[in-house]
Design a protein around this nucleic acid. Sequence first.
DNA 1: TTGACAACCGAACAGTCGTTCTGTAGCTTG
DNA 2: CAAGCTACAGAACGACTGTTCGGTTGTCAA
Lengths: 199, 199
Amino acid sequence: MALNSQKPALDPAYLEKLQDYYAEHKVIPSYSVLASLWGISAKSWVSECVKRFEEAGYLDWTPDKQLKPGGRFFERRLADSTVQAGLPNPAISEGYDLITIDDFLVRVPSKTSLVRVKGDSMVDAGIHEGDLLVVEQQPNANVGDIVVAIVDNEFTVKYLEREKTQFVLRPANKAYPVIRPRGRLEIFGVMAGLVRRTR
Amino acid sequence: MALNSQKPALDPAYLEKLQDYYAEHKVIPSYSVLASLWGISAKSWVSECVKRFEEAGYLDWTPDKQLKPGGRFFERRLADSTVQAGLPNPAISEGYDLITIDDFLVRVPSKTSLVRVKGDSMVDAGIHEGDLLVVEQQPNANVGDIVVAIVDNEFTVKYLEREKTQFVLRPANKAYPVIRPRGRLEIFGVMAGLVRRTR
DNA sequence: TTGACAACCGAACAGTCGTTCTGTAGCTTG
DNA sequence: CAAGCTACAGAACGACTGTTCGGTTGTCAA
């Protein structure tokens, strides 16, 4: 009747079951598996529900027309860091739920590697000895980036800066000197993240 | 001839392409898509390669016989800090181990959660605003641990210390005061690690 | 030079996929 | 109480899936 197009309902319980399945298997199942997962006995109805989730942004299709998680698939209800009495909901206090930490840190697996930090020359940037640096391998970087460079056949983590025409490596610790490489500066990659384990 | 059963070769480039595809689409493609992804024109050969990756632990099957990422699928290379000369292609060069970031940080998934750090009261411990803290939930901790406590209905990250008979929360930043909670100190969990994403 | 093996191609095939279409039970709405 | 809607069920179907099996090519050792 009304002018506004009213959207069809979509069952949040269905989405949750699918998210749980995905969390366990890291894959979207076929329609017939979805049917039994949702307690539905007609694939046609599964198809209809999928279409709704797709329109709502929870599901999507690959270029190869395979069903995949959509942009909102990993959304969580935003649990503020303020805690309601007793325990907060123990889920991730984040706009998005991380299926894996790995996914949070790594964008291009084939170009990403981990480098263990040696020394304390970057402590003022919150990078401590023993930390694992998530590095995206690429031969050049921008001024201001934290880069992993190769100096004297060893990895060095430093800020990339420019002095006149020359690139230099600046530590984040006054106790260390700026490194001014003679010749070409060889860059292994750019810092994309950091992982630390304590205990 | 030899006694040891020698495994068939499996192409690391294939795995990388699949991992990149998965990172983009969050789904394992079909054999025919895999074929074009790998530059292979026979599905039968894809099937063979998949079997090998499966035996090596990089791929697996759901109970519904759908292909899914295996346990080792999310492994990352941990590069050695000493570099052998040149290193034109660090992918092929040796000198790295493989670990998965999630396994590295999370020991007991059911008791582990992530908490986003607010404020700079722990900068001197290398914990910055915006970092994700890996927290193992438990109601008590040892003196010296970095704990996530609940004070005034909010999460607080601090060192746990003792003053005479009382437990106190000490920040790692001189600009902030020691917190002396009146009554019971409510501990949410103990810091087990840290994750930071830059860029 | 023969044979064994590994790396691939290509065709054939039964099973499964997702779509479409028709049907029906239950609930509103007027 | 008929009209209209939503939430499903069920069958039919062509497209596509992954497997099997029988090639072909290249390499290397005997």
